[in-house]
Protein backbone atom coordinates (compact mmCIF):
# COMPACT_ATOMS: atom_id res chain seq x y z
CA UNK A 1 0.00 0.00 0.00
CA UNK A 2 3.01 2.21 0.23
CA UNK A 3 4.31 1.30 -3.23
CA UNK A 4 2.42 3.75 -5.50
CA UNK A 5 3.45 6.74 -3.39
CA UNK A 6 6.99 5.48 -3.10
CA UNK A 7 7.36 4.87 -6.84
CA UNK A 8 5.96 8.24 -7.93
CA UNK A 9 7.95 10.05 -5.27
CA UNK A 10 11.20 8.35 -6.18
CA UNK A 11 10.71 8.83 -9.89
CA UNK A 12 9.61 12.46 -9.93
CA UNK A 13 11.38 13.85 -6.88
CA UNK A 14 14.34 11.73 -5.84
CA UNK A 15 15.62 10.86 -9.29
CA UNK A 16 15.58 14.55 -10.38
CA UNK A 17 17.53 15.50 -7.26
CA UNK A 18 20.19 12.90 -8.03
CA UNK A 19 20.22 14.03 -11.66
CA UNK A 20 20.77 17.65 -10.58
CA UNK A 21 23.35 16.59 -8.04
CA UNK A 22 25.31 15.21 -10.98
CA UNK A 23 25.09 18.56 -12.75
CA UNK A 24 26.40 20.32 -9.64
CA UNK A 25 29.81 18.82 -10.35
CA UNK A 26 29.92 20.23 -13.86
CA UNK A 27 30.41 23.50 -15.59
CA UNK A 28 27.33 23.84 -17.71
CA UNK A 29 26.02 27.04 -19.27
CA UNK A 30 22.65 25.68 -20.29
CA UNK A 31 23.33 25.43 -24.00
CA UNK A 32 26.70 23.75 -24.58
CA UNK A 33 27.65 20.40 -23.10
CA UNK A 34 28.44 19.87 -19.40
CA UNK A 35 32.08 19.57 -18.38
CA UNK A 36 33.10 17.77 -15.17
CA UNK A 37 34.86 20.10 -12.72
CA UNK A 38 34.59 18.24 -9.42
CA UNK A 39 33.84 20.36 -6.39
CA UNK A 40 34.75 23.64 -8.08
CA UNK A 41 31.15 24.96 -7.97
CA UNK A 42 30.91 24.39 -4.23
CA UNK A 43 34.25 26.10 -3.71
CA UNK A 44 33.19 29.11 -5.80
CA UNK A 45 30.02 29.43 -3.75
CA UNK A 46 32.06 29.46 -0.55
CA UNK A 47 34.02 32.39 -1.94
CA UNK A 48 30.97 34.25 -3.24
CA UNK A 49 29.91 37.13 -0.95
CA UNK A 50 26.45 37.22 -2.55
CA UNK A 51 25.88 33.61 -1.51
CA UNK A 52 26.74 34.38 2.11
CA UNK A 53 24.50 37.40 2.02
CA UNK A 54 21.66 35.27 0.66
CA UNK A 55 22.25 32.73 3.41
CA UNK A 56 22.26 35.46 6.05
CA UNK A 57 19.00 36.90 4.73
CA UNK A 58 17.40 33.46 4.69
CA UNK A 59 18.44 32.86 8.31
CA UNK A 60 16.98 36.23 9.36
CA UNK A 61 13.71 35.40 7.64
CA UNK A 62 13.74 31.93 9.19
CA UNK A 63 14.23 33.16 12.75
CA UNK A 64 11.73 36.01 12.54
CA UNK A 65 9.12 33.83 10.86
CA UNK A 66 9.37 30.82 13.14
CA UNK A 67 9.45 32.90 16.34
CA UNK A 68 6.35 34.87 15.39
CA UNK A 69 4.45 32.49 13.19
CA UNK A 70 4.30 29.25 15.15
CA UNK A 71 3.00 30.64 18.47
CA UNK A 72 0.93 33.26 16.64
CA UNK A 73 -0.91 30.83 14.43
CA UNK A 74 -1.44 28.40 17.33
CA UNK A 75 -2.97 31.14 19.45
CA UNK A 76 -5.12 32.22 16.55
CA UNK A 77 -6.37 28.67 16.00
CA UNK A 78 -7.38 28.43 19.67
CA UNK A 79 -9.01 31.87 19.57
CA UNK A 80 -11.00 31.03 16.48
CA UNK A 81 -12.05 27.71 17.97
CA UNK A 82 -13.89 29.46 20.75
CA UNK A 83 -17.40 30.55 20.12
CA UNK A 84 -16.56 33.82 18.43
CA UNK A 85 -19.55 35.09 16.43
CA UNK A 86 -18.74 34.65 12.75
CA UNK A 87 -15.77 32.42 13.55
CA UNK A 88 -16.14 30.49 10.31
CA UNK A 89 -15.98 33.66 8.25
CA UNK A 90 -12.99 34.88 10.25
CA UNK A 91 -11.17 31.62 9.56
CA UNK A 92 -11.85 31.88 5.85
CA UNK A 93 -10.64 35.49 5.79
CA UNK A 94 -7.45 34.70 7.70
CA UNK A 95 -6.82 31.89 5.26
CA UNK A 96 -7.32 34.31 2.34
CA UNK A 97 -3.66 35.31 1.93
CA UNK A 98 -2.58 31.66 1.83
CA UNK A 99 -4.68 31.19 -1.29
CA UNK A 100 -3.07 33.94 -3.32
CA UNK A 101 -0.23 32.90 -5.60
CA UNK A 102 3.08 34.03 -4.07
CA UNK A 103 3.85 36.12 -7.12
CA UNK A 104 0.66 38.12 -6.55
CA UNK A 105 1.38 38.33 -2.83
CA UNK A 106 4.68 39.97 -3.73
CA UNK A 107 2.98 42.36 -6.12
CA UNK A 108 0.36 43.35 -3.54
CA UNK A 109 3.04 44.14 -0.98
CA UNK A 110 5.01 46.27 -3.43
CA UNK A 111 2.02 48.59 -3.24
CA UNK A 112 2.27 48.61 0.52
CA UNK A 113 6.01 48.63 1.16
CA UNK A 114 7.47 50.57 -1.77
CA UNK A 115 9.27 53.56 -0.24
CA UNK A 116 7.79 56.00 -2.75
CA UNK A 117 4.39 54.74 -3.85
CA UNK A 118 3.57 52.32 -1.02
CA UNK A 119 0.60 52.52 1.34
CA UNK A 120 2.67 52.27 4.49
CA UNK A 121 4.83 55.29 3.85
CA UNK A 122 1.79 57.24 2.67
CA UNK A 123 0.04 56.50 5.96
CA UNK A 124 3.16 57.37 7.94
CA UNK A 125 3.40 60.56 5.91
CA UNK A 126 -0.03 61.62 7.21
CA UNK A 127 1.35 61.57 10.74
CA UNK A 128 4.56 63.27 9.74
CA UNK A 129 6.99 60.32 9.73
CA UNK A 130 9.72 60.52 7.09
CA UNK A 131 9.62 57.77 4.44
CA UNK A 132 11.28 54.51 5.54
CA UNK A 133 13.01 52.27 3.02
CA UNK A 134 11.15 49.07 3.93
CA UNK A 135 12.32 47.37 0.78
CA UNK A 136 15.08 48.17 -1.68
CA UNK A 137 17.46 49.53 0.92
CA UNK A 138 20.43 47.94 2.55
CA UNK A 139 19.05 46.28 5.69
CA UNK A 140 15.29 46.08 6.13
CA UNK A 141 14.32 43.92 3.18
CA UNK A 142 14.69 40.47 4.83
CA UNK A 143 12.53 41.63 7.74
CA UNK A 144 9.95 42.94 5.30
CA UNK A 145 10.05 39.62 3.44
CA UNK A 146 9.56 37.79 6.76
CA UNK A 147 6.55 39.98 7.48
CA UNK A 148 5.03 39.23 4.09
CA UNK A 149 5.81 35.53 4.48
CA UNK A 150 4.07 35.49 7.86
CA UNK A 151 1.10 37.26 6.35
CA UNK A 152 0.89 34.70 3.57
CA UNK A 153 1.33 31.68 5.84
CA UNK A 154 -0.55 32.45 9.03
CA UNK A 155 -3.86 31.13 7.72
CA UNK A 156 -2.10 28.03 6.45
CA UNK A 157 -0.44 27.29 9.80
CA UNK A 158 -3.60 28.20 11.68
CA UNK A 159 -5.61 25.69 9.65
CA UNK A 160 -3.21 22.88 10.52
CA UNK A 161 -3.34 23.77 14.22
CA UNK A 162 -7.10 23.94 13.97
CA UNK A 163 -7.31 20.49 12.42
CA UNK A 164 -4.79 19.18 14.98
CA UNK A 165 -6.93 20.48 17.80
CA UNK A 166 -10.01 18.92 16.23
CA UNK A 167 -8.64 15.38 16.23
CA UNK A 168 -7.77 15.53 19.94
CA UNK A 169 -10.13 13.18 21.74
CA UNK A 170 -12.80 15.23 23.47
CA UNK A 171 -12.99 12.92 26.49
CA UNK A 172 -9.45 13.77 27.56
CA UNK A 173 -10.13 17.46 27.25
CA UNK A 174 -13.36 17.16 29.21
CA UNK A 175 -11.72 15.04 31.87
CA UNK A 176 -9.08 17.69 32.45
CA UNK A 177 -11.79 20.33 32.70
CA UNK A 178 -13.71 18.28 35.21
CA UNK A 179 -10.49 17.86 37.18
CA UNK A 180 -10.68 21.63 37.62
CA UNK A 181 -7.78 22.60 35.42
CA UNK A 182 -7.76 26.29 34.55
CA UNK A 183 -7.66 27.31 30.92
CA UNK A 184 -3.95 27.96 31.16
CA UNK A 185 -3.19 24.72 32.98
CA UNK A 186 -5.16 22.77 30.44
CA UNK A 187 -3.23 24.46 27.65
CA UNK A 188 0.13 23.95 29.31
CA UNK A 189 -0.29 20.37 30.53
CA UNK A 190 -2.84 18.86 28.19
CA UNK A 191 -3.36 20.65 24.88
CA UNK A 192 0.22 21.54 23.96
CA UNK A 193 1.77 18.20 24.93
CA UNK A 194 -0.95 16.31 23.11
CA UNK A 195 -0.44 18.46 20.03
CA UNK A 196 3.30 17.91 19.92
CA UNK A 197 3.10 16.28 16.49
CA UNK A 198 1.06 19.18 15.16
CA UNK A 199 3.69 21.62 16.36
CA UNK A 200 6.32 19.53 14.63
CA UNK A 201 4.28 19.49 11.42
CA UNK A 202 3.80 23.25 11.37
CA UNK A 203 7.38 24.04 12.30
CA UNK A 204 8.85 21.73 9.70
CA UNK A 205 6.52 23.04 7.03
CA UNK A 206 7.46 26.61 7.86
CA UNK A 207 11.19 25.85 7.94
CA UNK A 208 11.11 24.16 4.57
CA UNK A 209 8.88 26.91 3.14
CA UNK A 210 11.25 29.64 4.28
CA UNK A 211 14.11 27.83 2.58
CA UNK A 212 12.04 27.94 -0.61
CA UNK A 213 11.04 31.62 -0.56
CA UNK A 214 11.52 33.03 -4.01
CA UNK A 215 8.62 34.87 -5.58
CA UNK A 216 8.21 37.32 -2.70
CA UNK A 217 11.75 38.60 -3.05
CA UNK A 218 11.59 38.45 -6.81
CA UNK A 219 8.55 40.75 -6.86
CA UNK A 220 9.55 43.06 -4.00
CA UNK A 221 13.13 43.88 -4.98
CA UNK A 222 14.27 41.42 -7.64
CA UNK A 223 17.02 40.55 -5.13
CA UNK A 224 18.46 44.04 -5.34
CA UNK A 225 20.04 46.41 -4.78
CA UNK A 226 23.00 44.46 -6.18
CA UNK A 227 21.87 41.11 -4.66
CA UNK A 228 21.72 42.58 -1.15
CA UNK A 229 18.23 41.16 -0.53
CA UNK A 230 18.51 37.77 -2.26
CA UNK A 231 17.33 34.66 -0.46
CA UNK A 232 18.96 31.31 -1.21
CA UNK A 233 16.39 30.31 -3.81
CA UNK A 234 16.17 33.71 -5.46
CA UNK A 235 19.93 33.74 -5.77
CA UNK A 236 19.82 30.22 -7.12
CA UNK A 237 17.26 31.32 -9.70
CA UNK A 238 19.49 34.22 -10.67
CA UNK A 239 22.55 31.98 -10.91
CA UNK A 240 20.84 29.24 -12.87
CA UNK A 241 18.53 31.07 -15.22
CA UNK A 242 19.56 34.73 -15.40
CA UNK A 243 23.29 34.12 -15.22
CA UNK A 244 22.93 30.76 -17.01
CA UNK A 245 25.44 29.02 -14.75
CA UNK A 246 23.42 25.84 -14.58
CA UNK A 247 26.03 23.73 -12.81
CA UNK A 248 26.68 26.38 -10.18
CA UNK A 249 22.95 26.88 -9.70
CA UNK A 250 22.42 23.17 -9.12
CA UNK A 251 25.24 23.17 -6.55
CA UNK A 252 23.38 25.94 -4.76
CA UNK A 253 20.12 23.99 -5.06
CA UNK A 254 21.77 20.97 -3.49
CA UNK A 255 22.99 23.14 -0.61
CA UNK A 256 19.47 24.52 -0.13
CA UNK A 257 17.97 21.04 -0.06
CA UNK A 258 20.53 19.78 2.43
CA UNK A 259 20.18 22.85 4.67
CA UNK A 260 16.39 22.58 4.69
CA UNK A 261 16.54 18.90 5.51
CA UNK A 262 19.23 19.33 8.19
CA UNK A 263 17.42 22.16 9.97
CA UNK A 264 14.17 20.17 9.93
CA UNK A 265 15.82 17.03 11.26
CA UNK A 266 17.67 19.07 13.90
CA UNK A 267 14.35 20.48 15.01
CA UNK A 268 12.82 17.01 15.19
CA UNK A 269 15.77 15.70 17.17
CA UNK A 270 15.64 18.64 19.59
CA UNK A 271 11.91 18.38 20.17
CA UNK A 272 12.17 14.64 20.72
CA UNK A 273 14.95 15.18 23.26
CA UNK A 274 12.74 17.57 25.16
CA UNK A 275 9.97 15.02 25.11
CA UNK A 276 12.13 12.34 26.70
CA UNK A 277 13.85 14.71 29.11
Amino acid sequence: MIAPALILFTLFLVYPVIYSLGFSFTKFQGFGSPEFIGLQNYISLGQDPFFWRALQNTVIILIVSIVLLVPGSFALALLLRRKVPGGGALRALVFGPAIIAPILVGLIWVFILDPKIGLLNRLLGFVGVAPVQWIGGDTLTPYAVALVFIWGSIGFAMTIFYAGRQVLPEDVMEASELDGATGFQQLRYVTIPMMRETFAIVTILMITSVFKIFELVYMLTGGGPVHRSETLVSYMYFTTFTNQKYGLGMALAVIITVLGAVVSVAYLALSRERKTA
Binding site: V110, L113, D114, P115, K116, I117, P131, I135, G136, G137, L220, T221, G222, G224, P225
Partner: peptide, 8 residues
Protein backbone atom coordinates in the same frame (compact mmCIF):
# COMPACT_ATOMS: atom_id res chain seq x y z
CA UNK B 1 14.09 58.15 -8.64
CA UNK B 2 14.20 57.48 -4.89
CA UNK B 3 12.64 54.06 -5.47
CA UNK B 4 14.93 53.00 -8.29
CA UNK B 5 15.64 49.71 -6.46
CA UNK B 6 12.03 48.61 -6.19
CA UNK B 7 10.77 50.14 -9.42
CA UNK B 8 10.56 47.93 -12.50
Amino acid sequence: ASNVSTQT
